[in-house]
Design a protein around this nucleic acid. Structure first.
Lengths: 147, 147
DNA sequence: TTGCAAATGCAAATCATTCGCATTTGAGTG
DNA sequence: CACTCAAATGCGAATGATTTGCATTTGCAA
């Protein structure tokens, strides 16, 4: 887990204001092992001493995403947008349809494919979205027991 | 373009009712070269002689997707769900961020990767989502002219 | 042709997200 | 440290896509 300090340094270097809420949001996402929805962030911060409003969370997410401190993700299962700390490490998600847990995998199997496509078609690729869906070991075991 | 008749045969074989609206929706999607939103389907069918309600479109899409006659797609750019005829041919989308046109590419660069991942981690993959985003030739040309 | 479950239309409801506006706050400046 | 002001926040209302309840209509099997 990247040190929170490094993230706060990056926050400062963006030039946007360094507010209590933004710091607490980054703190929460940094220690979270799963991408989180605006709602989950809101509920988590609300528990603590100082309160926050949901629209502030949404606005914070917008600006943190724009400044590359946070990534925005939309999964096929589930309706809400999720957010995770942007560690500037290219990765993809493996999502368990049983327990909805999200696993991260580093590396990318399609970079080469992108180049080929560019050469072949002239299309200029600037980004991609790749997610794998299925069942984690634990959910596979549970499934077997049911039968 | 697959013959509409084949699609209607598949519709019949599902056992769900063979209604005028559903047939016209399949017809529209079959001749469409782009995935379409519920709204676009609604507007298109409304023009023609008989009318339709938007909720009927949504309900039809649900059941057509459940019966594998139609695929549901959510693109990163844009907020609405899109639908396309399900031709049962594995493919992915290349989306132009300039003109929002969607191109289809057959074949899949990650099947082998999926197998590796399964072997390595024990995760059982049942599906994936892969889309490429960038700029088509035409939009690249236009971009140059602006500079 | 009849019966009935499934499909439809319409309006109201829902849910995530955004926006308007009055108030507060971070952070540079003197 | 006090001052200023744009940026950030809180609250509630608005939005936009999608869903739902319910009364009516329509496929289709018998």
């Amino acid at each position: 887990m990247e040190d929170l300090q490094d993230i706060l340094v990056r926050l400062k270097s963006t030039g946007i204001k360094n507010t209590k809420h933004r710091i607490r949001i980054l703190e929460f996402l940094n220690q979270s092992h799963q991408p989180r929805s605006a709602d989950e962030i809101y509920e988590s911060l609300r528990q603590e001493d100082s309160s926050i409003s949901l629209s502030t969370v949404y606005r914070a997410m917008d600006i943190l995403v724009a400044n590359e401190l946070v990534n925005k993700v939309n999964f096929e299962n589930g309706t809400k947008t999720s957010f995770e700390i942007n560690r500037h490490i290219h990765h993809h998600f493996v999502v368990c349809l049983g327990c909805n847990k999200v696993f991260s995998i580093e590396g990318c199997p399609i970079h080469e494919y992108e180049h080929e496509l560019e050469k072949k078609t002239g299309f200029k690729v600037v980004g991609h979205k790749l997610e794998l869906y299925g069942y984690c070991k634990a959910c596979q075991r549970q499934q077997k027991h049911k039968n």
